[in-house]
């Protein structure tokens, strides 16, 4: 499937900020199932190439806006060809041992209720099936409700509230899979319309490491494994590691955020911009 992504994020400041510094993880890391044809990130109209990769292998760059900053506008334009690999992820740059992803973080801290949720999944031999059941459990216990949680909400807090967004589903899925002894991580990316009931959006899901398969994606919010409607960008132990934008600002008082994403199915387009996701990829497609 040919996907054309346009993703605009605008940060506005209640009064001009003295300085804004942000770390962006907005370039797709290389993996099977998606071939990057063109990818460009602009900050306030100026192209920003990625500068380095982080410990998880995610391309990353920082930018700094100085002086009286009213707003920062980040535009992502990407063109990707995807295929459905039933969630199985290969070809990624893996710098950390798989077992590192067994350990919890503050956002994915396991409390009694998460332990109990994980314990409700029968201990069947088919690990893929077991994770599908866990995926459904997570979704059953967490209504999809926007605006009740934020980026600082822990998996345990979301579970206690019984509602959340994709980030909370991903955290809860990862935390409870770890309880069952499966290494698990958080993934950020995009989801285009086409999955029933879903709108084009920035999205998050979990990847679970399963013997014989490697990393397999599970999108608890939609009860499925990622398919050709998904574009994978960054991963880490939790949201903090993989957040598309992490920033700090001096002055400026409060910051407001406006995001728009549109994704369309298009015919192939000419290449433009840098495409880190292309590296070493062609052989695997």
């Amino acid at each position: 499937m040919h996907l054309s992504i346009q993703h605009r994020t605008v940060y506005r400041y209640a009064e001009p900020a003295l300085r804004v510094t942000q770390a962006l993880r907005l370039w797709p890391a290389a993996c099977t199932g998606q071939r990057v044809i063109g990818w460009q990130v602009d900050v306030d109209g100026k192209a920003l190439p990625y500068a380095t990769t982080d410990g998880f292998g995610n391309p990353v760059a920082t930018h700094t806006a100085d002086g009286a900053v009213d707003q920062v506008r980040i535009d992502v334009q990407g063109h990707v060809e995807t295929e459905d690999l039933h969630g199985v992820v290969g070809g990624t740059l893996e710098r950390l041992p798989v077992r590192f992803f067994l350990f919890e973080t503050p956002l994915t801290h396991v409390d009694e209720s998460i332990r109990e949720l994980a314990g409700q999944v029968p201990s069947i031999n088919d690990a893929i099936e077991r994770m599908h059941r866990l995926c459904n459990h997570v979704r059953d216990r967490l209504d999809y409700v926007a605006g009740e949680t934020d980026s600082a909400t822990t998996a345990a807090e979301a579970l206690a509230n019984g509602s959340g967004v994709c980030q909370d589903h991903a955290h809860l899925m990862a935390a409870s899979a770890r309880v069952l002894g499966f290494p698990a991580r958080y993934v950020s990316g995009y989801l285009c319309a086409g999955v029933e009931g879903a709108e084009a959006a920035s999205h998050a899901w979990a990847e679970i490491h399963i013997a014989d398969f490697g990393w397999v994606g599970f999108d608890a919010a939609n009860r499925i494994c990622p398919n050709e409607h998904y574009v994978r960008i960054a991963c880490g132990r939790d949201y903090h590691d993989a957040a598309p934008v992490r920033g700090v600002h001096r002055g400026g008082r409060s910051e407001t955020l406006e995001v728009s994403v549109s994704i369309s199915e298009t015919p192939a387009m000419p290449t433009r911009g840098g495409s880190p996701g292309n590296r070493g990829q062609s052989a695997q497609q």
């Binding site: 510094t21 770390a23 500068a51 380095t52 990769t53 982080d54 990353v60 760059a61 920082t62 700094t64 920033g247 700090v248």
Partner: peptide, 8 residues
């Protein structure tokens, strides 16, 4: 902000 990425 950014010291670590300058190192990287």
């Amino acid at each position: 902000p950014g010291l670590h990425f300058a190192t990287r």
